[in-house]
C-alpha cells in the first residue's frame, strides 16, 4: 500500500469523523445538560461532562410537569398522521405509478404546487377554516392539517418505490389468477415494505417535530404537542434548561424506537432476485 493511498484513506475517515461530530454534537449536548444538576449548570463553566450526574430533571419533568400529556398528544398526532398519510400515499403512489388516467398530469402538477408555498402564509387561512369547525385546539385538527401537508410528498416518495418494482410481477400474479387489487396487496405491497417504512418514518418525524401549526392552532396544555410543550419550560424570567433538555431526551425515545423497528426494511433490498439473472 502506498503512502498516498494510506493518506487518502486517513483523510476519508477523518472527514467522516468530523462530519459525525458536527452532526451529533447538539444531541450530545442535549444529553449532557439533561444529566447536569442545576447547581453545576452555571457554576462549572463549559465542560464536556459534569463532575456529578443526576436524573433529577427527568424525575421532575415526569412528576411535576405536563410533559406526559404532551408526550401522549404527540404520539397520537404523529402516529395517526403517519398511518393515514402512508395509506393515502401508497394507494395514490400506486395509481400514479401504474395507471394512465385523464388529468394525471394536472394532479401531479397541483400536488407539486402545494409544496411551493411557505407554510407561514397558510396559517391564518387554515385557522379561519378550522375555527368554525371546532377543529382548533384539537388533535384531530392537527392530524388533518399534517396529513394534508404530507400526502403530496409522501405520494411522490411511494410512487418512486412502486416504479422500482417491475410491472411483470403483478402481471404474473394477474395471470396466476389474482385481481389487480389482490396482486397489489399480496405481491406488490410486501415488496414495498422498505418504501412504506421510509414513508412512515419520514411523516412520523415531520409531525413529531412540527411546531408552527401546533403553536398556532393549539392553546392551553391539554391538546398541546411536545414541541409546544417544550416552550412551557421557558418562563418570563428564566429558562429551565435542565428540564427542557430532559424532556427533549425523552422525546427522542419514540423516534429512535420507531427507526429501530423499521431500519430492517429501510436497508433491505427486498426486490433483489425478482427479475433477471
Amino acid at each position: 500500500m502506498t503512502a498516498k493511498r494510506i493518506f487518502g484513506i486517513l483523510a476519508h475517515r477523518l472527514a467522516i469523523l468530523g462530519y459525525l461530530v458536527f452532526a451529533l454534537f447538539p444531541l450530545y449536548w442535549l444529553v449532557k445538560v439533561s444529566v447536569t444538576p442545576n447547581k453545576l449548570l452555571y457554576s462549572e463553566g463549559v465542560r464536556l461532562w459534569p463532575s456529578r450526574m443526576s436524573l433529577e430533571h427527568f424525575a421532575f419533568v415526569l412528576k411535576h410537569s405536563d410533559f406526559p400529556i404532551f408526550f401522549k398528544n404527540s404520539l397520537i398526532v404523529s402516529g395517526s398522521t403517519a398511518i393515514i398519510v402512508t395509506v393515502f400515499a401508497s394507494t395514490a403512489g400506486y395509481a400514479l405509478s401504474r395507471f394512465n388516467f385523464r388529468g394525471k398530469y394536472w394532479i401531479v402538477a397541483l400536488m407539486l404546487l402545494t409544496q411551493m408555498f411557505p407554510l407561514v402564509m397558510l396559517v391564518a387561512p387554515i385557522f379561519k377554516i378550522l375555527s368554525p369547525l371546532g377543529l382548533t385546539n384539537s388533535l384531530t385538527g392537527l392530524v388533518i392539517v399534517y396529513t394534508a401537508f404530507n400526502v403530496p410528498f409522501a405520494t411522490f416518495l411511494m410512487q418512486s418505490f412502486f416504479d422500482g418494482i417491475p410491472k411483470d410481477l403483478e402481471e404474473a400474479a394477474m395471470i396466476d389468477g389474482a385481481t389487480q387489487f389482490v396482486a397489489f396487496r399480496q405481491i406488490i405491497l410486501p415488496l414495498t415494505l422498505p418504501g412504506i417504512a421510509a414513508t412512515l418514518g419520514f411523516v412520523f418525524t415531520a409531525a413529531w417535530s412540527e411546531l408552527l401549526f401546533s403553536l398556532m392552532l393549539i392553546s392551553g396544555n391539554q391538546a398541546a404537542t411536545f414541541p409546544v410543550g417544550l416552550l412551557s419550560f421557558v418562563s418570563k424570567f428564566s429558562v429551565d434548561f435542565g428540564q427542557m433538555m430532559a424532556a427533549g431526551v425523552m422525546a427522542l425515545v419514540p423516534a429512535c424506537l420507531f427507526f429501530l423497528l423499521i431500519q430492517r426494511y429501510l436497508v433491505q433490498g427486498l426486490t433483489a432476485g425478482a427479475v433477471k439473472g
Binding site: 411483470d168 389468477g177 389474482a178 427486498l270 432476485g273 427479475v275
Partner: peptide
C-alpha cells in the same frame, strides 16, 4: 375477460418470480 379468467399461463422474459 380479465387475465385471471382466461385460464392461460405465461412465462415472462424477466421470469417475474415473486421475490418474497
Amino acid at each position: 375477460l380479465a387475465p385471471k379468467d382466461r385460464d392461460i399461463a405465461m412465462v415472462f422474459q424477466s421470469y417475474a418470480l415473486y421475490p418474497h
